[in-house]
Structure formats: structure tokens, C-alpha cells
């Protein structure tokens, strides 16, 4: 048996024989789905990348923001 197959078998039988682990994996997958398929695209865009195309535009925007911030 080659190494890749051995590694695959190791993980496959490991996951197959899980008991409580299966519930945990279900929780992990649901959690990752909510994070990456719902929260990230719908609520958490990278603001600068979304609004600006070039590094210069981003730099100019941050320059404006930092030099004109309302005083606290």
C-alpha cells in the first residue's frame, strides 16, 4: 500500500469509527458554512477592497480618513 493510500485509510477509518466526534464534525461544518457562506459574503465585505481597485486609491482614502477624523 502506498503512503497516500495509507494516510487516506488512517483518516477514513478514524472518521468512520467516531462516536461523539460525528456530532462535533457536524457542528464544525455548520459553523463554517454559517461563517463563510453567510456571514462573510453578506455582512463582512473587505471594505477597502470592495470600494477601491488600486493601492493608491486605498491609500488616498485612508489618508483622508486619518487626517480629517472628527476629534474625540
Amino acid at each position: 500500500m502506498n503512503t497516500t493510500k495509507k494516510v487516506f485509510q488512517f483518516y477514513y477509518t478514524g472518521f468512520k469509527n467516531m462516536t461523539v466526534g460525528k456530532t462535533l464534525w457536524a457542528i464544525i461544518l455548520i459553523k463554517l458554512f454559517i461563517m463563510f457562506a453567510i456571514l462573510k459574503p453578506l455582512f463582512f465585505p473587505n471594505l477597502l477592497s470592495k470600494n477601491f481597485d488600486t493601492a493608491e486609491q486605498k491609500s488616498n482614502y485612508v489618508f483622508e480618513q486619518l487626517t480629517t477624523t472628527p476629534k474625540q
Binding site: L24, L39, F44, P45, N46, Q65
Partner: peptide, 26 residues
């Protein structure tokens, strides 16, 4: 159990850097 439930919860902090704290991130 603790690891499985907690894993990746920190990633949300990184989402927040890009959205809520973009001036800081840059």
C-alpha cells in the same frame, strides 16, 4: 469537544478587521 466547538471562532475577528476596522487594517 472544547476544540471542535471553539475552532474557527477567532476567524470572525478577522472578518471584523476588514469591515469594521478597515482604517486600522490598512
Amino acid at each position: 469537544i472544547n476544540f471542535a466547538i471553539g475552532v474557527a471562532t477567532g476567524i470572525i475577528l478577522e472578518f471584523e478587521f476588514g469591515t469594521n476596522w478597515s482604517n486600522y487594517s490598512y
